[in-house]
């Protein structure tokens, strides 16, 4: 009986304040979408880290004709130097760090270069002897790049030791910043949502002050008086959270899954299943947001 009563109170409250309820839904929708977008970016970063850190290599580039580093002063790398370097990489000293070593000749480098810039006119002006040959080193622990760098960068015949991870870190830092930006927007929108929920509850309390006054007089408990208001806010926020989840899922399915993944088949993208993991978090967040802000409002506007 009491449940049915509370439900009917909620229903009438939602109907009475329809426009406010819709605005609460929309604001929580937007704010939680941004929260979720930040979450997705973090998931994506983790995904890419997991994927790429297994694949990143340290490249030991060898000297070519016009290398400028001091260790290349003697001109292009000699057969002898190359063998020394290979020998060192495969030696006992480095086995704890080095998982595997591959050699990339100038011709292979050109091949890769042509693949990578297939659509660019730059391809036609590059010849194999301009590109350095290199050793591609897979590390046991990608964090231990410095070991290789220190040992090899000043060796005669080595132009430069480069860590591909550095490039990735740049990409990740851009993505981190984007997710920070999304969180910032989410923060502002969340403040909006809290204030709007508070206003809605206030209006709702005002339009039902007769009922609540009588409830008080006949000895209705605090829960019966306040629950309809709180649930009103929570329901609106949860609807907003569901919309946000839907939007994020659509985004991951159609933008990431349907477009980005096809454009960049090399990259590991998050799947829409992973997005579903965010849904309970968003709903919980929305409900918490509405619950807390309506509780605080009720304390001021609905005397019990």
């Amino acid at each position: 009986m009491r449940l049915a009563f509370i439900l009917s109170e909620i229903g009438s409250g939602l109907r009475r304040n329809l426009s406010m309820v819709i605005s609460v839904i929309l604001v929580t929708f937007i704010s939680l979408t941004f929260v979720g977008a930040a979450g997705l970016l973090q998931l994506q970063i983790n995904q890419m880290k997991g994927y790429w850190y297994d694949r990143v290599q340290v490249a030991v580039f060898l000297c070519v004709e016009n290398s400028t580093s001091p260790s290349c002063a003697a001109g292009p790398v000699t057969e002898e130097q190359r063998d020394t370097i290979r020998g060192m990489l495969e030696s006992e000293t480095f086995t704890p760090y080095v998982a595997s070593v591959e050699y990339e000749s100038q011709d292979e480098a050109l091949g890769h270069f042509q693949d990578q810039f297939a659509n660019s006119p730059i391809v036609d002006s590059v010849t194999a002897d301009q590109l350095p040959e290199s050793f591609r080193v897979n590390l046991v622990d990608p964090e231990k790049y410095e070991v290789i760098n220190e040992a090899f960068s000043s060796l005669p015949g080595v132009d430069v030791v480069s860590d591909q991870r550095e490039l990735l870190e740049k990409v990740f830092s851009v993505m981190n910043r984007a997710s920070l930006g999304a969180l910032l927007v989410a923060g502002v929108m969340t403040v909006c949502a809290i204030l709007l929920i508070a206003t809605t509850i206030r209006l709702s309390a005002f339009s039902r002050r007769r009922e609540t006054g009588i409830m008080r007089l006949v000895g209705a408990s605090k829960a019966v008086i306040q629950l309809p208001f709180i649930l009103e806010g929570v329901i609106a926020a949860v609807v907003g959270a569901l919309l946000a989840s839907g939007a994020l899922w659509g985004m991951s399915r159609f933008v990431i899954g349907g477009w980005l993944a096809r454009e960049y088949p090399e990259t590991a993208f998050i799947s829409d299943q992973q997005v579903l993991l965010l849904v309970p978090a968003l709903i919980l967040l929305g409900a918490l947001l509405a619950g807390v802000s309506s509780l605080l409002t009720l304390r001021r506007y609905v005397k019990v």
Binding site: M1, R2, F5, R210, E211, G213, I214, M215, V218, G219, A220, S221, V224, I225
Partner: peptide, 22 residues
């Protein structure tokens, strides 16, 4: 202090509903 949008019966019943009477 009656509720204007409720009938006589509902006004009286309201006092029982809110304290959980069946």
């Amino acid at each position: 202090r009656l509720l204007p949008n409720k009938t006589v019966f509902a006004n009286v019943a309201f006092a029982m509903q809110v304290i959980g009477k069946s």
